[in-house]
């Protein structure tokens, strides 16, 4: 498929953001078509998370430009949105995000996929930090949303976990989904395009 025939999932035009008197990025334009896998790169403090929140529609104040999101999205933020008092099963069945499958078989399958088989009925506060992250990542196997916005999905995940995660993301791309993610690690998959926020910052740094 050529880019022209693929449906647009998200379009951002002329984004600009200043924090504390510093211009983080300026006139940033970004399009995510179905089948696009975009890796946002940048050092700490270059505004990766802020950009992702703007794209998700969580930040609506204080930036320039326009974002139009045509698809339902799955957002994975810094916070895991996992309730320590609930079991992994309950956490997923009662997750507040939309567009996820909630039937028991699908949830058990997803928990097995993130290596939490045998833990599904323990309260999450008895799980390790990495296991709690994985409860959240299990949503990637339940999601029906075409567009994924993932903020540092690899944090606190072991090597095997990262490989399985990338495989799942590649599968999502092959199914016609789109991914915009941030990560300090390299994403070793073919077809990943990179957007660097370092340049946007350094350009402006020379100016001011």
């Amino acid at each position: 498929m050529t880019a022209a025939t693929r449906p647009v999932l998200l379009e951002a035009r002329d984004l600009g953001l200043a924090r504390g008197g510093r211009q983080l990025f300026e006139s940033l334009t970004l399009t995510c078509n179905s089948g696009d896998w975009i890796h946002l790169q940048g050092a700490n403090g270059t505004g990766k998370t802020s950009l992702l929140r703007i794209l998700a529609g969580l930040s609506r104040l204080g930036f320039e430009g326009e974002v139009s999101c045509m698809a339902e999205l799955l957002y994975l933020g810094h916070h895991s949105a996992v309730k320590p008092l609930l079991t992994p099963r309950e956490n997923l069945a009662m997750h507040l995000s939309g567009a996820i499958q909630r039937d028991a078989a699908a949830i058990d399958h997803a928990l097995a996929a993130v290596d939490l088989y045998g833990y599904e009925n323990r309260p999450c506060n008895s799980l390790s930090a990495g296991q709690q992250r994985r409860v959240n990542l299990a949503r990637l196997y339940l999601s029906e949303a075409p567009l994924w916005l993932l903020d540092e999905p690899y944090t606190a995940i072991d090597v095997g976990g990262v490989q399985r995660l990338e495989a799942r993301m590649a599968e999502h791309i092959a199914d016609g989904g789109g991914i915009i993610m941030t990560s300090h690690q390299r994403v070793s998959q073919p077809g990943v395009s990179t957007v660097s926020l370092d340049e946007a910052a350094s350009q402006h740094g020379a100016e001011s």
Binding site: Y75, G77, H78, H79, A81, S97, G98
Partner: peptide, 17 residues
């Protein structure tokens, strides 16, 4: 408060419900 702290609230806002 707890839904805000653990990110559940963000998920709710994005749920399109």
């Amino acid at each position: 408060r707890s839904d805000f702290d653990d990110g559940s609230l963000e998920q709710l806002l994005l749920s399109r419900q």
